[in-house]
Design a protein around this nucleic acid. Structure first.
Lengths: 209, 209, 209, 209
DNA sequence: TATGAATGAGGATTCATTCAT
DNA sequence: TATGAATGAATCCTCATTCAT
């Protein structure tokens, strides 16, 4: 039993190592420019071994997506635990998202660029859909929060889903802008956290009026 | 003379055809997943012909970037012509950006993803820098407008460049979100124009207070 | 008539320009690494025009060969005109060969490397044979000279053809060695003319004993 | 252990097979006219496999060069072992060179043509220089021998390096002439060994006087 | 005759994936 | 399970040659 367990743990650890290496590479190159070779080299494993854990390069990519969303979801759940007014919880969510970005920059970018990534049919539709449903679920909890806020009278009546999307989009836009800055010759220079807070306050005050 | 002229025009037309085909392909696949073959096929030209007009795949990509920025800049200039308060001009710029997106969706995405695109040294630094300078110039005109607004007392004192970036980032975030929607299984459903207007009003009211 | 003549002259001039450009390129790159484009550019003509004068790249190459041999032959004929002992004429031939090398370095190398050049069947056998026969004729005049020397008692009896070949080979070996020096990081440094003279004296004294 | 060893041996064997195939092809076509396809086909390997062993076509070529020089150097070392007068050792070197040619015709030609081969920057300068240094070292041992001969009074005072070069050049010239004969329609017919001996005797008697 | 645009057959190189050990 | 050698299909790019003007 102990042996079986250890085996399992080792296997999971291996898998994690691969995903870590892949994260690094996909983040920097995107799906199609990344090579399995480079991932294997970084994971200090042979290329063959990678194929024991994943069937294709795309499957590694999708696994990363799933991991990323799960992590983000955990951050959100943590933020939602607070017993407080909907507006304060919203701010906590904002901070959670920011922390997710800060602490998991690679995941963040991979998540964000997912929709511009051509998997050219290498991933089965159900797997893709499951993955995308997770993203939606992640946003849904925020919508639910806003709805609660409306019910409780903290927010004025509105379409919660729409508000979520504006917020989400703005945040992503701002963070991606900062990311570009990192990667390029610093075209722009600014304090991202400030911008995010600014943007959030705009939205929340918009919700309150 | 006429002949020389016609030749020139034909050459330019050919070039345009190639760029049009490339736009289509790059938009859908990104730089590295796109193939020269596919662009050639789409342009109904032989692969060799493409190389008469562009030295590398990356050069085609950069040319598209430049075209895109030029078009966007033209939209902005048009919007800036108006003799009106800075806030109204700002709204015109927003609409211009929206129209640019609507009328040149492919350019928009290519522009936006440029910063996540690894040109892996296939493009000379000066060419890249010229291209990036154009983008900056494009944003600068907006910053100048805000500054004017501050001077004229329409806006409260602020860092114009920072405001430009928040706006730009939010807009991109929103539009890209909508783009994802188009391309994928319609994860989200919402009226982007409304979101943009909403977001813009938030920003402008923020500037005015 | 004048017109026809002028046309002819112009055509010949064109041809000569092409060959001059080709000489430059083939000398530096060899047949297969040379490109028709480069030759055309150097000749300041369009690629198409080249094909009005030559059917294939290989045909240009063979034409150069022929030109080269003709020039060399002319040098030899000049040297042979002298009324003098066979040994002195032999020295004149040596000097002629040296001058040919000095004044037509490109031809020299092209001639020399011809035999290591793969024409991969792009040149018809008769044309090749005519070309190679010319080379042989060129050597034959030297053999004839040696024979005369033997008849006249200047040289001791020997196989003239064999002597020609040793001389020819040694000279080529020495000159090519010097050529290498030019083209590379000066592996060797020496006075080629001296070596040639040395080598010649060895041979002639060998013939005389 | 045994396994690791066998792997190593197999890898070396594979490498050798590739080099053998490459030798055949480069000898016949030269660097630029040779194709990786042809080498792979001859080695009965896929093209991809070649790139597991060598980074570029040029690297295969340089590897052949190195092999060739090493073999030649071994022949020379063997010849130099003899305890005998410098003149006799010189003759042994000549025979060694001849044997090298006879037994490694392909290497010989590749070595000889190296200096007329445009590697167009595909090989790093240090690698090229190491290769060329080897050639120089090879000639240096002969120069040293001649020097010894002068010291011992067997030869008259002279510039040993110069003598080496004349000899080397003449030999190459003669052998290349014979090579041409092999490959082409037997333009010339002669006994190369005899010519080499003749040439060598000329040189040695020149050294002795 | 001269042009240069267009072609398409290669050519070098890369890389996801498989498979024997 | 882990390896890494082998594969071959793609991919980018080149270039001799043709052809309409």
């Amino acid at each position: 039993m102990g042996i079986v367990d250890r085996r399992k743990r080792e296997k999971a650890a291996r898998r994690a190592e691969i995903l870590k290496a892949a994260r690094h590479v996909f983040f920097r190159k995107g799906l199609s420019a990344a090579t399995v070779d480079e991932i294997a080299r970084r994971a200090e494993l042979s290329k063959g071994t990678l194929y024991l854990y994943f069937r294709t390069k795309e499957e590694i990519y999708i696994s990363l997506m799933n991991e990323g969303i799960d992590i983000l979801f955990a951050y959100f759940r943590q933020a939602l635990k607070a017993k407080a007014g909907a507006d304060r919880v919203l701010r906590r969510l904002k901070d959670a998202y920011y922390r997710f970005y800060k602490e998991h920059r690679e995941y963040f970018t991979i998540l964000f660029l997912y929709f511009h990534t051509d998997l050219h049919g290498k991933i089965s539709r159900p797997i893709k859909e499951r993955c995308e449903a997770k993203v939606e679920a992640c946003l849904q909890v925020i919508a639910d929060l806003i709805e609660r806020g409306v019910t409780e009278g903290v927010f004025r009546p509105c379409d919660p889903w729409q508000m979520v999307l504006v917020g989400w989009a703005s945040f992503n836009g701002i963070i991606m802008l900062a990311e570009q800055d990192h990667q390029h010759s610093s075209l722009l220079r600014f304090d991202m956290k400030k911008l995010l807070d600014l943007s959030a306050e705009h939205l929340i005050s918009g919700l309150k009026t």
